[in-house]
Simulated assay, not measured.
Amino acid sequence: MPLSEHEQRMLEQMERALYAEDPKFATALEGSELRTYTRRRVYQAVAGFLVGVALLMAGMVAKLVIVSVLGFLVMLGCAVLAVTGWRKAPKPGEQPPAGQGHDGGGRPHSRRQGRPRRSMMNRIEDRWQRRRDEQQ
């Protein structure tokens, strides 16, 4: 369901105020680091898939079944990586789930167990309300 003009204006005002008051927090909400990581992972998986196709074709031309099977397995593995990476990629403006980031090796951390998952808008609204309460 699309937002009304009034709701869109209110949301834009909230975004501008958030960027003005706390640019570091607003930038963290964008999730650009995780988005870049998952996009790179998907691109690598697509490249691997193409290598698998080349192996499959080379095995067929050379009549080596093992090379063809290896190519098929590479294609299958890369397709799974691409699909899972694509599903996990956050949308623009969406924050990664709590506790999810990157460790030193570039792999994402697993989410903390036991914490209820809250939407990004709920977290923003809570923080906005706390700031308004502090000012009064």
Score class of each variant (00 low, 15 high):
89 A>P: 00
27 T>Q: 15
98 A>M: 05
53 V>R: 01
22 D>C: 02
99 G>A: 05
77 G>L: 05
89 A>Y: 01
47 A>P: 00
12 E>K: 12
122 N>K: 13
8 Q>F: 04
120 M>V: 15
68 S>I: 01
9 R>M: 10
117 R>E: 12
5 E>C: 06
94 E>D: 10
29 L>V: 03
130 R>P: 00
2 P>E: 14
49 F>E: 04
15 E>D: 13
54 A>G: 10
103 D>T: 06
45 A>V: 02
133 D>K: 13
109 H>Q: 11
81 L>N: 08
128 W>H: 11
37 Y>T: 10
9 R>Q: 13
130 R>T: 04
57 M>Y: 11
31 G>I: 03
95 Q>S: 11
16 R>T: 10
59 G>K: 01
94 E>T: 06
54 A>T: 10
93 G>F: 03
42 V>S: 02
86 W>L: 13
118 R>V: 08
25 F>I: 07
13 Q>N: 14
3 L>C: 04
73 L>K: 07
60 M>T: 10
117 R>C: 02
24 K>L: 11
69 V>P: 00
38 T>G: 02
22 D>I: 00
132 R>P: 00
33 E>V: 14
113 Q>E: 13
75 M>T: 02
114 G>E: 03
16 R>F: 06
127 R>V: 02
74 V>S: 06
36 T>F: 09
85 G>E: 04
32 S>L: 14
33 E>R: 13
28 A>P: 04
109 H>C: 06
12 E>L: 12
79 A>C: 09
62 A>W: 12
58 A>P: 00
121 M>R: 15
116 P>M: 14
109 H>D: 05
74 V>F: 03
41 R>F: 03
30 E>W: 01
76 L>P: 00
48 G>T: 06
116 P>N: 14
26 A>F: 01
122 N>A: 14
85 G>V: 01
123 R>A: 07
